[in-house]
């Protein structure tokens, strides 16, 4: 299944989900799509639909309302799938971690493969995070990237 394994690395489609971020990280995720960073070079496409996604990019801390949604979306992504938590909020809850409605980082609800810290995470870091996720996938499959 060599070609399929290679293709998985070459064509990660991402889905971006915003829990309760301050929108700082969201802007940075979108910045990755711009001509300056152009993540489509790596075959990365922002899909906006879990059914087509391979990598779930989550920003913001999980609150009581979004926990269920996040879980649902994660379940709807077909395997194999990776999760990248972008921003300090998504990693641990960040500045919001003591709020009345906040559960904490994304890993409270779904398993996370790569943590990208930063407030906000820089586009380079985000791209790096997705590439790290792909490397992890490659290692799991036993193929070279």
């Amino acid at each position: 299944m060599g070609i399929i394994h290679t293709s998985r690395i070459k064509s990660p489609w991402i889905m971006h989900f915003d829990n309760s971020s301050c929108n700082g990280c969201d802007i940075e995720v979108l910045a990755c799509l711009t001509p300056l960073y152009d993540i489509e070079r790596f075959g990365i496409v922002n899909m906006g639909n879990p059914k087509h996604a391979d990598v779930l990019v989550v920003t913001g801390a999980v609150n009581r309302r979004t926990a269920r949604v996040l879980k649902n979306l994660y379940d709807q992504i077909p395997d194999p799938k990776m999760v990248v938590a972008v921003g300090t909020c998504a990693c641990s809850g960040g500045v919001f971690h003591n709020c009345y409605n906040i559960l904490g980082g994304v890993d409270k609800v779904i398993p996370v493969d790569v943590y990208v810290p930063g407030c906000a995470a820089r586009p380079e870091a985000i791209i790096d995070g997705v590439v790290l996720a792909l490397q992890k996938l490659a290692k799991l499959q036993g193929v070279a990237i």
Partner: peptide
């Protein structure tokens, strides 16, 4: 399209990567 938007764009064979990746995904 990428060039028209001032981007570098994916490789020409990108659709095949997409295709084979999709073939390898779990069937749901």
């Amino acid at each position: 399209s990428a060039r028209l938007q001032g981007r570098w764009g994916p490789p020409i064979v990108q659709p095949f990567y997409d295709f084979f990746k999709l073939l390898g995904k779990s069937k749901i």
